[in-house]
Amino acid sequence: MSITYLEAIREAQYEALREDPSVFLYGQDIATFGGAFKATKNLSKEFPNRVFDAPISEDAMVGMAIGAAVEGARPIIEMQFADFSSIGFNQIVNQAATLFWRTNVPCPITIRLPSGGTAGSGPFHSQSMEAIYAHYPGLVIVTPATVEDAYWMLLDSVKLNDPVIFCEHKFLYYHLKADQIGDRELPIGKARIARPGRHATIVTYSAMVHEALRAAEELQLDGYQIEVVDLRSVKPMDTDTILASVARTGRLLALGEAFPWGGVTAEIIARVTTDGFHLLDAPPMRLNSKDTPIPYHPNLWKSHRPTTSTIAAALRRLLRN
């Protein structure tokens, strides 16, 4: 038996609903229909009156989750696509993110964002929004790259007493499978060494972990051992694990699928150059998408985002420096 990344997300929500009666689910088409991606399949049957179809009102969906959280509930909100969370942006960054700091009342909500690009999805069904939310104080931003993390980090997110933006990657939904869900290994806030190496470090997260691993395989043929660090959560960002890796390799490539201006990869580079400049044998590099909206046609889309071959090319340049 195997389980996909998407099924793990469903299972985690099942478990969250089972464990804690204060958990409820609110989102468009998530009840009988089971969600646009089927991440809540059958949950409304298994937990009557705890899984609700929302009107197309993202601002109000987030607002109602915040109000419910103040009353002791632990809502999980599904955005149909991460891109539509921009409509709930005000409630997320101004209401949810500031609540604890202003009032000492925590805000335990989890907002699930089906994120990232897939071929043919175009500029409004492909976005990666982790950086924009990470910019605001008061939010936890989770970006699972594995089936285990999708499961355990979603359960952890629901238990966390702070608002969590749970960025689940649509590209991994069906493609990524595990034989079973193993034990919970790391808490939110800790990065993972996805592949050990000694010549260069790639720090990345979410779907790009898998592209990075493939690029590392490719470089292995040239005799290079590339270490891949999977951040797991981009905020908090596990700087210690990043620095320890760079200390081993002396070279850094920060990799992300999101737009290039600022963002997670810039944060990685900023931290390593300020706290670990002496560890670097070469200028650090970063690789992101291009600085345009995300294109529709697969030819353009493939060139817009980093791929195994552009990552491998970047690594070769990094190793030559």
Binding site: G120, G122, P123, F124, P293, P295, Y296, H297, L300
Partner: peptide, 10 residues
């Protein structure tokens, strides 16, 4: 009109 940048109904 969208030059492959955007698609379908957009």
């Amino acid at each position: 009109p969208m030059r492959g940048r955007d698609g379908n109904i957009h």
